[in-house]
């Protein structure tokens, strides 16, 4: 993706009722980049899946919030979710976890989990053919 980007960081409580809020936020950000409505819907699903796993994690943590960072490029979009290694390791456990992994992998152009002291889940989507004709 091109180097210039706008950065938006959201600090969210680990509560299920705020996942709908982040879905709406993503919708607005992706529309600003110029994605078509189908792709906006796809990425809303992907972001929700990751947030769901974070807020429903059984990992013990003193952190009651988590951060989602968005980078808006001229030709795409990236989102970064900073989580503990415990959450990252158990992100896709169980049947619904397998569904979530398949959904995220299929609907994004970039998907990775990198761990150091904390883990960062990264997703990315290029504008490509997903451009809104009315942009």
């Amino acid at each position: 993706m091109k180097q210039h980007f706008d950065e938006i960081i959201i600090h969210l409580p680990k509560k299920a009722e705020y996942v709908g809020f982040i879905r709406l936020t993503v919708s607005g950000l992706l529309s600003k980049v110029g994605f078509d409505i189908d792709t906006v819907e796809d990425i809303k699903v992907v972001v929700s899946e990751i947030c769901n796993k974070i807020v429903s994690s059984k990992c013990k943590s003193e952190r009651h919030h988590y951060d989602v960072k968005f980078h808006l490029f001229d030709n795409g979009f990236k989102a970064f979710f900073k989580v503990s290694s415990c959450i990252a390791e158990n992100l896709f456990e169980g049947e619904s976890g397998e569904f979530a992994k398949a959904i995220i992998s299929s609907l994004t152009d970039e998907f990775s989990i990198e761990c150091d002291d904390y883990c960062t889940i990264t997703i990315g989507k290029y504008l490509g053919d997903s451009i809104n004709a009315n942009r």
Binding site: S48, S96, G97
Partner: peptide, 12 residues
């Protein structure tokens, strides 16, 4: 209008 992996798991 929307269902996530948790909802799909419940249907299964």
């Amino acid at each position: 209008s929307y269902i996530d992996s948790a909802g799909l798991g419940i249907l299964v």
